[in-house]
Simulated assay, not measured.
Amino acid sequence: MATLDEQGSKSARLTLEIWHPDCWTLEVTEDAETGLIAHTVSNGTDGRVKGHFTAYGESTAAVESLVDATRRSPLTSSVSEMQRRYEFEHHGLTSGYTTKELFVEYDPSNTISDGLLSQGFIQDAPVRVRNGLEYWSVFVEQADRDELHDRLDVIREEYDADISVTKIYSHETRTQDVPRRVDALSERQREIYELACEQGYYTWPRECTTRELADAAGIAKTTLLEHLRKAEAKLLNPKPVDSPRSL
């Protein structure tokens, strides 16, 4: 887990792990082996938020169950399935999963996006939702660590939210494009890569073996190595990654 004490007075990119009440995306993914990618939203003239989401999972049945739960949720107004669009596959976020594109309408009072924006946290990538948690990649202008703590505390109090900072990239690191390359990983590649980092797989000496990492991920060793090889190839590729659309 990153801490704001690692960040001085400079622009930064943060990854925030967020839970807040009365959020349909968190409720429908909490006990499911599925997830959501939030691409774009807009405020309608009827006062509702209208958003484009990708539902993904290991099987068609799992995704259908997620879609049904979204339709049944008292926190959504309407749910429509959309035709798959190439540009949302291009970034590889859900590569290897069964997916459905959804257009969902819901009450804006049950989202935290306005709260983040009001405190200067600008969304910098699609929002990932899994296991009842949202993962926001945000950019923030000049601010010292105490001010960032205070800004996050304002959002926590206003929305009764749990917010943790899981990653911090300084402006200098951002210019090297490493964070952008992480965004190019598929959801599964990202999960495995981040697990490897957390378990000390890339430290010297290594703190876990490939077998131990595969057991922690709940997959075969050969599958784990395939995910890691593909993730490492993307991270080491110097070709710039296109900027994803913002929510």
Rank of each mutant, 00 (worst) to 15 (best):
A196I: 03
E191M: 04
T173E: 14
S164V: 06
A62P: 01
D114L: 13
Q119G: 07
D146R: 03
E191P: 00
Y169V: 00
P205G: 10
A38K: 12
I155H: 06
F103L: 15
S9A: 14
R130D: 00
D144I: 03
Q7T: 07
L4M: 10
S78D: 15
V154D: 13
H149W: 01
D31H: 13
G132D: 08
H20E: 12
M82N: 12
T210P: 01
H20G: 02
T15H: 09
D46H: 02
I192E: 10
S170C: 02
F53P: 00
E6S: 15
Y86C: 09
Y159K: 14
S80A: 14
S246Y: 11
C23P: 10
L228I: 14
A32C: 06
A143L: 00
D144C: 03
A231E: 05
S109G: 11
A233V: 01
T3A: 09
L148W: 02
G96T: 11
E30F: 03
L133D: 08
T29K: 12
K167H: 15
L4Y: 10
W24G: 02
I112E: 03
L236G: 15
E207L: 06
T223S: 14
S109W: 08
D153C: 09
V104W: 03
P126V: 11
A12R: 11
A61F: 00
Q176I: 12
Y86M: 07
G115K: 09
T166C: 06
I168N: 06
E141F: 14
L225I: 12
A161F: 03
L228Q: 05
G47Y: 00
R229K: 15
V165D: 09
P126K: 02
G200F: 06
E187K: 10
R211D: 15
T3H: 15
F121R: 06
Y201N: 04
I37P: 04
H90C: 11
S118V: 04
G96Y: 03
I192T: 15
N43F: 13
N131V: 09
L228K: 06
T209S: 15
T60P: 00
T173D: 12
S137T: 12
E172M: 03
P244I: 03
I219W: 04
Y106M: 07
D160V: 04
L4S: 14
A62H: 02
R180W: 09
D124C: 00
I37S: 11
Y97W: 11
R48E: 09
V140R: 01
D160F: 04
A184P: 05
K10L: 07
D153I: 05
T111A: 07
R156D: 08
V41L: 09
E158I: 08
R206L: 07
F121N: 05
V49M: 14
T76M: 08
G200L: 05
D68I: 01
D150P: 01
D22V: 05
L16A: 10
P238E: 04
R245F: 03
R180E: 10
L235A: 13
T203E: 13
L247Q: 06
I122W: 14
T98C: 11
D31E: 13
A125F: 11
A55Q: 03
E232S: 14
A217E: 14
L4H: 05
E81H: 07
T70Q: 04
V154E: 11
L247Y: 13
D215P: 00
S11M: 13
L236N: 13
Y106E: 07
P238Q: 08
